[in-house]
């Protein structure tokens, strides 16, 4: 046994000693004078409590959670709007910048190259002798517009279909539109006469020119 090691009795005595010290200290500490607040300080506390009670329901928006949620929502909306705007600007730059890039590279852009022309939807039938030239155009995909069937709504007549243009190589008059015929003699002549004009016509014009006309 270590001679410096305390015995059980010594440990018990020490523990008892500390307990007595704690009890005495507790008695002295609890007998220490305890002073109240001043009256104005108590009034200030009660005023703060009354203010809190009266303004409580109206100040719900001052809660930290609500303020945080509102701030988060605002940040989210702003960031989303910024991202969408940046995407839109990027698309615009891409659309504008592509032709310039092609020109800068010296590339020629063929809008109507051979494959495009060969794949044109227009079909031209070679005319046979004595047959009218028929040019048909491939009909684009039909777009159906369905109007609501109101009883008072006027029913529009169907759009007139354009019949294929027919022209006759055998001297038949055009069946669709014929321009009015114009008599060449009715066209007034202005200027010098051509060399191959008949002599009588030249004389008539010279006489008309020499006739006295009142000067204004």
């Amino acid at each position: 046994m270590n001679p410096h090691e305390p015995t059980e009795a010594e440990l018990h005595a020490e523990a008892q000693d500390l307990e007595n010290l704690a009890a005495q200290l507790r008695a002295e500490l609890q007998a220490e004078p305890a002073f109240p607040l001043r009256e104005e300080q108590r009034a200030a506390i009660f005023a703060a409590a009354a203010n809190k009670v009266t303004s409580g329901p109206q100040s719900w928006w001052r809660r930290g959670s609500l303020i945080g949620a509102a701030a988060g929502l605002a940040v989210g909306v702003l960031s989303t709007a910024t991202v969408l705007q940046m995407q839109h600007l990027h698309d615009l730059r891409t659309m504008v910048g592509q032709p310039r890039t092609a020109e800068a590279r010296g590339l020629s852009i063929h809008l109507l190259d051979e494959p495009t022309l060969s794949a044109a939807p227009e079909e031209v039938t070679a005319p046979a002798p004595g047959q009218p030239v028929v040019a048909t155009q491939a009909t684009p995909p039909a777009i159906r517009l369905e109007l609501p069937s109101f009883p008072s709504a006027p029913v529009l007549p169907p759009a007139p279909t354009v019949s294929p243009v027919r022209s006759s190589l055998a001297g038949e008059p055009a069946s669709v539109v014929s321009a009015p015929r114009v008599d060449p003699a009715s066209i007034p002549f202005v200027g010098h006469a051509p060399k191959d004009l008949p002599r009588s016509a030249v004389k008539d014009r010279a006489a008309a020119k020499a006739s006295p006309t009142p000067k204004r």
Partner: peptide, 24 residues
Amino acid sequence: YERPLVRYALGVVGDLESARDAVQ
């Protein structure tokens, strides 16, 4: 808790008025 708090604050700060202010 008024008086215990003033007594405790007085033990920390060592000045009664400061202790009262702290409790208020």
